[in-house]
Design a protein around this nucleic acid. Structure first.
Lengths: 221, 221
DNA sequence: AATAATTTTACAGATTTCCGTAATGGGCGA
DNA sequence: TCGCCCATTACGGAAATCTGTAAAATTATT
């Protein structure tokens, strides 16, 4: 089992809840709960430099702004920094995000080892996740279906870019220009039309207003 | 100080965190943490019927869907039910919402006694809130400015009808027809155009897509 | 009652959306 | 290499949005 665990979570009640639960349920020597990404990173780095590195990082993804300016503003930022300095540390993300595409990206792009989705069992799942990750296995909350990221109606990177731009008031002509500016293909207005029309069918939306409203309410954009 | 406190919060870690913290920091005899609105209500009602009512309800606002069908699906639902059966119980809302308009409505419309905004001090704030509410005072997290709720652009009933219809994919022509059908005036397409254009200015939106996205993200529609 | 101010409505035009059809072009197996 | 499939693109037309201006109706003021 791990000896040193670092926890990054900005909500005080949740932070306390996790630390307390793990302290009572697991035989961990050092457990450290931080409320800021930057503080978590500093503690991680100090331990690494002292040759007594943390073996596991448990982190949320979204962190509220605080009174002090921040360098690392999200769990993703923290993970990226931590990974570059220590490829061996295990990372479990504990967040309320349910979108399989985003979760998938955490594994492939950010090389995390486990994902626990906040909910009514998330403490129990977190304990399981720690056991699994400790044995070099990965863990994902059971009700999350990562396969659906490929099959079912999920939004890929490209869809997300278009939808987010639409939700920010860009016209399709402008979006086409923006894609060209970033050398992203396909980028014709016609293709964007087609993509969005397909999303109308998939999400049963009457028009763009409806589609944007639905997806935002579902937390997908 | 209160003898019986009921806590409704669907995230296991947060729920545990709150219950643990209050148990160690306050001299409360009965503390009860529930993960579902319906279960919280049942427990509340049972205690009330036994003439040993809970004196304080601490509740979140948003509750995830679970495996079982729900009657009460939100903190608002729960509060409304509880208030109708027991006008004396104190209610503190513990949520991540920061919008002053929504928070204001909780006090005026739902008659809550305190609002604690989840964050890096929310446990400490919650303890303070309990002391305040216990002495028949109200409490609001210090960084929330309820006064700004008055200056901020509010949406009246009419605006809301139009915006909700737009978000459901109705065209302005259709909305005009729907208003006429319900004998609501004004109802011309032109007036609807004007109303929405004025909202563009007020909310600094480029077009309808942008406006709908902004308002949904702010929880206003 | 008369006038002023505001709101509602009509209308027009430029732009954008939405949804067809069809042309273009690349990848891949036979 | 040929032919086929599919994604991309081009284009066109009907409908909808967005933005003006101005007339009509309503409300407020004196």
């Amino acid at each position: 089992m791990f000896n040193k665990i670092l926890i990054a979570e900005d909500f005080q009640d949740t932070n306390k809840g996790i630390v307390n639960a793990l302290e009572t349920r697991l035989p961990i020597k050092t457990m450290c709960g931080e409320l800021y990404c930057d503080k978590a990173y500093n503690r991680f780095k100090a331990a690494l430099d002292e040759n007594q590195p943390f073996e596991l990082l448990i982190t949320d993804l979204s962190f509220k702004e605080g009174p002090v300016p921040r360098r690392l503003t999200s769990g993703q930022d923290l993970i990226k920094e931590v990974r570059t300095h220590d490829p061996n540390i295990k990372i479990i993300v504990n967040s309320m995000i349910e979108n399989p595409v985003q979760i998938n990206r955490l594994f492939t792009e950010y090389q995390i080892n486990g994902y626990v989705c906040k909910g009514r069992n998330s403490l129990d799942e977190l304990v399981n996740a720690i056991y699994e990750v400790c044995q070099n296995r990965t863990f994902v909350s059971p009700h999350i279906n990562l396969n659906s990221a490929n099959t079912v109606f999920e939004l890929d990177e490209y869809d997300l870019m278009i939808l987010k731009d639409l939700a920010e008031g860009f016209t399709k002509k402008e979006i086409s220009q923006r894609l060209k500016g970033r050398n992203i293909s396909p980028n014709s207005e016609s293709t964007i039309d087609k993509k969005v029309s397909r999303l109308f069918d998939q999400f049963e939306a009457k028009n763009t207003h409806h589609l944007i409203a639905k997806l935002i309410k579902q937390g997908k954009i």
